[in-house]
């Protein structure tokens, strides 16, 4: 397809723990394991998963903030991973990152002007200081902050305001692609909505593509075009938003959806409560990595890793039983019921 902006092919990252003085080798952590996906022009892809699933690492691999162990990232006909450091640096004009931590990601001793104008200065946008000041004022205005804040320091601002500053910096160079790593998860609920809406507005206005990383499915419902669910370094399900939310095929996606607590005491939905913990990425189970917690696990799951296959409508699922379990709402409840019984019998209560 022609409107693919950036695409990852078999992207992988293994963190090998530092070898000690005597050269003993620690255990390797497979953070991202052979991930392939595309982001189209003007599209928002949400990348969702729990801690340790490799979602942040994947976001950084795309922009080479971490060097990949293997794979390719295609952008504008080039493999980003093959570029020299200097070539890659030049590419950063188009590819920007919004960080999770609005407190840590702004240099504490610099003013807001210095922080936002840094990318302008690096790429020589705006010849004079006054031109840059004008641009920064414009950017501050676009993210909903008063330009009069320009000469203040980050510590004078609240978390939400700081995240706006981070966004202003990310859009300063009119990038084509922005990766946002849990940009609202450390903010208060009432402020989260402001930031999500702001990013949505900016995207519509400026037309960049967006990879929005989140730890649960509720936050991205409003902003995503497509959703990818990650588990232990792999994408287990990816597809158009409506399909992933309405007909989730992978049992993990189903559990993730049902685990989000709804602010409604009458929403006594039958929850699928997964047993056990997410295995450590240093010790990924063989076969389907979800088999240790899967409610519909079969022998084949412990043996073979299911490939990520298209179900026919653009939704891709990595499950041996995806075809057999495109759960309708009724089946979903049934499954949940049997699951609850199982929990009841193993739990002591």
């Amino acid at each position: 397809m022609n409107d693919v902006l950036i695409s990852a092919r078999n992207l992988g990252k293994t963190f090998s723990s530092a070898s000690g003085l005597l050269g003993r080798k620690g255990r390797d952590v497979r953070a991202v394991d052979g991930v392939s996906f595309d982001v189209h022009r003007r599209e928002t892809v949400a990348l969702v998963g729990e801690s340790g699933c490799g979602k942040s690492t994947l976001g950084r691999l795309l922009l080479r903030l971490i060097e990949a162990s293997e794979g390719e990232v295609h952008y504008m006909g080039k493999d980003l991973l093959k570029l020299s450091r200097e070539q890659m640096r030049a590419m950063r004009k188009d590819l920007q990152f919004v960080f999770q931590d609005p407190y840590g990601s702004l240099s504490p001793r610099r003013t807001i002007f210095e922080i936002i104008s840094e990318p302008l200065e690096v790429f020589s946008v705006g010849k004079t200081r006054s031109q840059r000041r004008e641009r920064v004022a414009q950017l501050l205005d676009q993210v909903g902050l008063s330009p009069s804040f320009m000469d203040r320091q980050p510590r004078q601002f609240s978390g939400g305001q700081r995240q706006r500053i981070g966004i202003a910096r990310a859009i300063a160079l009119d990038p084509t692609f922005i990766v946002a790593d849990e940009p609202v998860s450390s903010l208060d609920v009432s402020v989260q909505a402001q930031i999500v809406n702001l990013m949505q507005d900016l995207q519509e206005d400026k037309g960049f593509s967006f990879l929005f990383i989140a730890h649960d499915l509720s936050v991205v419902r409003h902003i995503a075009d497509r959703v990818a669910v990650m588990y232990l370094g792999r994408i287990v399900e990816i597809g158009p938003k409506a399909m992933v939310y309405d007909t989730p095929h992978h049992p993990y996606t189903q559990a993730l959806l049902s685990a989000v607590p709804e602010p409604d005491p009458d929403a006594k939905k039958t929850q699928i409560i997964l047993e056990g913990d997410v295995p450590s990425p240093a010790n990924v189970p063989p076969g389907c990595s979800f088999h240790t917690r899967c409610p519909i696990v079969q022998a084949v799951c412990r043996r073979d890793r299911p490939p990520l296959l298209d179900t026919g409508k653009g939704q891709m699922v990595a499950c041996h039983f995806a075809e057999a379990h495109p759960l309708t709402k009724g089946e979903h409840a049934d499954l949940a019921k049997t699951r609850l019984q199982a929990v009841g019998s193993t739990g002591a209560l």
Partner: peptide, 18 residues
């Protein structure tokens, strides 16, 4: 302003200010 799963609003409601 709480994002919900079963909700097709295009925009979240927001409380202004911090």
């Amino acid at each position: 302003s709480v994002p919900r799963l079963k909700d097709d609003r295009k925009r979240l409601h927001q409380i202004p200010g911090s």
